[in-house]
Write a protein that binds this DNA or RNA. Sequence first.
DNA 1: CGCGGCTTGTGAAAATCTTCGCAAATGTAG
DNA 2: CTACATTTGCGAAGATTTTCACAAGCCGCG
Lengths: 181, 181
Amino acid sequence: MSSEQLASHGHTTAAQVRKDLSHFGSFGKRGLGYSIEELSVRLRAILGLDRVWQVVLVGAGRIGSALFEYPDFKMRGYDCVAIFDSDPEKIGVQWGTTTIHSSERLEAVIEQLDVDLVILAVPASVAQEIADRAVEAGVRGILNFAPVQIKVPDSIPVEDVNLVMQLEALSFKITRGGAGE
Amino acid sequence: MSSEQLASHGHTTAAQVRKDLSHFGSFGKRGLGYSIEELSVRLRAILGLDRVWQVVLVGAGRIGSALFEYPDFKMRGYDCVAIFDSDPEKIGVQWGTTTIHSSERLEAVIEQLDVDLVILAVPASVAQEIADRAVEAGVRGILNFAPVQIKVPDSIPVEDVNLVMQLEALSFKITRGGAGE
DNA sequence: CGCGGCTTGTGAAAATCTTCGCAAATGTAG
DNA sequence: CTACATTTGCGAAGATTTTCACAAGCCGCG
């Protein structure tokens, strides 16, 4: 497949595809293009997707539940090894084969299972505290659903999921007049 | 509040804040900084957040449910005026004061209520079809949770929510070594 | 093997974004 | 009213990203 074809699938140009890929090495064959199979394998390795990541979910509310059920996670190599919640009603409940633990045990589990990522699906008011404890316990990245800007050391990447902001981005694009992006 | 202070809240610099704001006009007072109150009002107007947006939710599964319950939506001016699902079991069920309709009625409702935005919380396999119908019916923007790249006219903005990709971004940042961003 | 149609990889040019630096405002204190 | 300590708005300089353009490599064919 040529860079031209690849570009048409993403939202970009042939030159951009080639530049981006050349950043990590030389994957194509001149006159032929790129082998999807080889690209897939090499990019997976570069992106760190060629292994299983240990994830814990904090917050067993609606968002947590929706996430946990989302089949793509397991399929893409994200293994949810534990769930935490502070509600005594929920503690001990099983979701599939995973049991909901008390938030108090967060540090212990992160350390014991060498957890990589925390998914924060808790109210804004406790997000920072949980984040601090998770980082302290050695977690290496955070996916944050709470609508607050959490502060962590620079060495710990955080990805924010902010649905209101995405709706607002839509509103702006519409207001500004037409054009998508 | 000075641009310096504003910058420290976001993830940016004083110069950047001033440039960005100057793009839309001249909001500050020299020697004093910016009035939070005035900034808030003026930016809301620019972003199109000073009105209520009519939203419909398509897909009453777990994600749809989590979204619908999310209190911030209503508070931020996004009014979910209808829910659709193709599952006959769900049709007619009430969520709060909103009833779940058959997907067949999508076009009728969009046209009748002059709906602005569609939230697509359906399986990937039907996302494109629903999007096409919504656009045809006159919707003006799409928030897409389905893990596919949907194609719409350039004049219709689409925001994708792709949680797997955000997890993968985290994985990459960790793999690449340390630094957040 | 040599030729011709393709496509990559990559410097160099063009465009865009960010930072710098400072004149012009603004308020305060004396 | 004047001197002074601030802070904006903005042109210009610097940095980064994107696009262009083309030599070099690859394949198939005769």
